[in-house]
Design a protein around this nucleic acid. Structure first.
Length: 751
RNA sequence: GCUGGUGUAGCCCAAUCGGCAGAGGCGACCGACUUAAAAUCGGUUCAGUGGGGGUUCGAAUCCCUCCACCAGCACCA
């Protein structure tokens, strides 16, 4: 590794200091400007940032800085998803209090993020473990309780024996705990539920109305909600009123009791499981859907026309389903019924490090919510965390023993805490007015900033956090607190960071530490490579040589600009006379680059191709400088235009080097106070284009033709071309296809 | 099994409406500079787009089919 790299350590520290001293990224509501709320999923303060964080925060920062330069008032906040089990595990393993562990981690990770040069309004930082934060969530809990949106029941739940707590359905992955991968067992437990099923239809409908979301996330949410329509009816065990045939009835542990009624109708002809069951028990198998020609399987599960089904014969499966439901309803035999796969959200966790559930149990009055003026119900500091037995809070007498809000008599507090996904279901609202102490958030601030215009985070939250946050926002709307129906207008699900074919992990030994990288090559290089190596939605293959390449590019930019800074400071902004041919071509490259970078950022966040366009321009800049084909004055003017454009375009990606070089050119203002450049149509104009000439689809020649040349002329020139004529010898021209400005294809036949 | 995605050069990735397969980076190789090396600069190399079929003047792109990999769902009737 070379020693003559540009002084990234000094300039990165310098500009981070200047931005902070100037409060450059602090924002307030400003109705005179269009707003843009740019949000990345906040991290869990696990201790250190990893490359996945570098990637997602680099993506968000490019967007935030770019939008500011486009004139938007940009809200770009950061905070901490600070409750959670790892803090308790640390307490068990190292005897550190979860609060101390968490806040120390936050301090460390904040410092790490600051070294990345991210343009956050740090004044809005929140930590969800702060009582001033979770107080409002307790208040909303009470309001949900009043409206029947939060309820308590005993139920069979998913239990993680390792985490010693209940898990929601969404938190079980293939029968294992989403966090620790332990096999999940079943257990009967009393607990609190949020009535997310009440919003199932609305959550589903809005899946069609969020075009800024990736289709795959919406598909996953639709599948998760799992709406299905059918009918529910009583099947008389004897008598069989109105039903045509005898039906066998089995009682067996063959079905899911928790879904629907626990009774099913078996259709062995059209369901392989039922086929197997029928075959095993010697039952008749009646085909009720016509098999397509050539079908050789047993049960047929595809679509088709009904047969052997009386009045349903001849209909498709979907039509028959609807008609059968109508038939049952019309005869009063049953009713239409919608079932969902989605279950209510179980939020009780038998853990310490979470927001207390603000209810007490009184011998006289039963379950009673805490009074509003007594909120927050503060998590007690003094607690023994052993990792064994029941909820740690149950052992804290001073917490458990409470007064009944109704009668003042002795009562016991609920000793469970809320699922930490509750905190992350509204933090984006808290950022709008993070220090507001009269409520969850200030109404006007939320009305100005919400919804989040662009949300960025990992695909692993496709149905967890993203579904909960959508639900919670709708609850807040129905409580009259917010106006928006949905929290996130656009969603970008970024891919994982991979190295040597696997996700980075300690056990695989393929971890790249962001601190090491920033120390050895700088934050701008770390950002540049993580943005350049792949489009954001795809997995990123980390490659140390590739990182070197990113560093090399920034060094190249540095050397060129510093080497020319002095003459560029006094260079004319525009060349006096008309440009030379070389000058016109170079200026076109500059403006084409502006157009490409802008569309790449705007459409689909293709930062990788935006960066490659910038690299091309830098290559062109070196070539233009070396060739010295234009007069000196013109060369200086164009070099100045190119370099200034370059720094503006590079700024969102690599902000420190852009600021330093911008100031080296004599500018007093921040590069981020500049307007994003716009391409000049006149600079893009060409008089001539290259047209490819094909004979029978194979490229045989190229023509340079003036823009707007009539097809007929281009056709004649193509046919007369020296490189084309030999391919026409002995053949007849059957057809000539002319695509203006692009290509000519001469189609021939044998003579 | 179902659903969605991906498959282009040795590697990471590009390629507007179907119109020159290659922009950028990495690697390798050659040259310049150097006593030498590093760094730097310049250049060269390399695939016919996972396989097969179809539509078209023309297909990485559209259609059919098969394969591989990734992700989600999966006794939800």
């Amino acid at each position: 590794m070379s020693s003559d790299r540009y002084p990234f350590r000094e300039i990165e520290a310098k500009w981070q200091g200047i931005w902070e001293a100037r409060n450059q990224f602090r924002v307030t509501e400003d109705p005179s400007k269009p707003k843009f709320y740019c949000l990345e999923m906040f991290p869990y303060p696990s201790g250190r940032i990893h490359m996945g964080h570098v990637r997602v925060y680099a993506i968000g920062d490019v967007l935030a800085r770019y939008k500011r330069m486009r004139g938007f008032n940009v809200l770009h906040p950061m905070g901490w998803d600070a409750f959670g089990l790892p803090a308790e595990n640390a307490a068990i393993e190292h005897g550190v209090h979860p609060a101390i562990w968490t806040y120390e981690n936050i301090d460390h990770m904040r410092a790490q993020l600051k070294k990345m040069g991210l343009s956050y309004d740090w004044d809005r930082e929140v930590a969800t473990c702060d009582p001033a934060y979770y107080k409002w969530e307790q208040l909303v809990f009470i309001k949900m309780l009043e409206r029947g949106l939060a309820y308590r029941k005993r139920s069979r739940v998913n239990w993680c024996p390792s985490c010693q707590t209940v898990l929601a359905n969404e938190q079980v992955e293939a029968g294992r705990c989403w966090r620790c991968d332990t096999e999940v067992t079943q257990k009967d437990v009393d607990g609190w539920f949020f009535k997310i099923t009440k919003y199932a239809d609305e959550l589903l409908e809005w899946c069609e109305r969020l075009p800024g979301w990736p289709e795959r996330v919406m598909t996953m949410q639709r599948n998760w909600i799992g709406r299905s329509e059918g009918a529910e009816f009583d099947l008389p065990v004897a008598g069989r009123a109105g039903l045509a045939a005898r039906v066998f009835t089995f009682i067996a542990d063959y079905v899911l009791m928790g879904y629907g009624t626990g009774a099913i109708m078996a259709v062995p002809g059209e369901d392989q499981r039922d086929w197997d069951f029928a075959a095993q028990h010697g039952l008749p198998i009646i085909e009720t859907v016509a098999r397509p020609a050539g079908f050789t399987g047993q049960a047929y599960t595809g679509d088709g026309v009904k047969i052997n089904s009386g009045f349903l014969d001849g209909l498709t499966v979907a039509e028959a389903t609807r008609k059968a439901i109508d038939w049952l309803v019309a005869r009063g035999l049953g009713e239409a019924r919608v079932n969902y796969r989605l279950r209510d959200w179980g939020i009780s966790r038998q853990r310490y490090w979470g927001a207390p559930i603000p209810v007490v149990y009184c011998d006289r009055h039963g379950m009673v919510p805490e009074k509003e003026e007594n909120l927050p119900v503060v998590l007690p500091r003094d607690v023994q965390i052993s990792g064994k037995g029941s909820s740690p809070l149950a052992e804290v007498a001073s917490f458990v023993n409470a007064k009944c809000p109704v009668c003042g008599g002795p009562a016991r507090r609920d000793t469970d805490t809320m699922d930490t996904f509750v905190e992350s279901s509204w933090y984006f609202l808290r950022y709008c007015s993070p220090r507001y102490d009269q409520g969850m958030f200030e109404r006007q601030a939320a009305e100005y900033w919400m919804p989040v215009d662009q949300y960025i985070g990992g695909i692993e939250h496709a149905v967890l956090h993203l579904l909960y946050a959508r639900f919670y926002t709708k609850v807040l709307r129905d409580l009259g607190l917010v106006k928006v129906d949905e929290p996130f207008l656009g969603l970008l699900s970024q891919g994982m960071v991979i190295k040597d074919g696997a996700k980075m992990s300690k056990s695989k030994g393929n971890v790249v530490d962001p601190d090491d990288l920033i120390r050895s090559l700088g934050a701008d290089t770390a950002r540049l490579f993580s943005l350049f190596a792949a489009p954001p939605e795809r997995d990123l293959d980390w490659n140390d040589h590739g990182v070197e390449g990113a560093s090399r590019f920034l060094n190249r930019v540095w050397r060129f600009v510093i080497g020319h800074a002095e003459e560029l400071r006094t260079a004319p902004r525009r060349a006096a006379g008309p440009l030379s041919e070389a000058g016109r071509a170079f200026r076109r490259t500059i403006h084409e680059t502006i157009a490409r970078v802008t569309t790449d950022i705007e459409n689909e966040f293709h930062f990788n191709t935006a960066i490659s366009a910038i690299m091309e321009m830098v290559n062109a800049l070196h070539a233009f400088d070396a060739a010295a084909a234009a007069p000196r004055e013109e060369r200086l003017a164009l070099t100045r235009e190119a370099v200034e454009t370059l720094l503006l375009l590079v700024g969102p990606f690599c902000p420190h080097i852009a600021e330093e070089l911008w100031s080296a050119l004599g500018h007093a203002e921040s590069v981020f106070a500049q307007r994003w450049p716009e391409e000049e149509p006149a600079a893009l104009a060409r008089d001539e284009v290259t047209v490819v000439v094909q004979v029978d689809g194979k490229v045989r020649s190229r023509l340079t033709v003036e823009v707007g040349a009539p097809d007929e002329r281009v056709r004649e020139r193509a046919l007369a071309d020296d490189k084309v004529r030999p391919w026409l010898a002995g053949r007849r021209v059957a057809r000539v296809v002319v695509i203006p400005g692009r290509l000519v294809n001469v189609v021939t036949r044998a003579d």
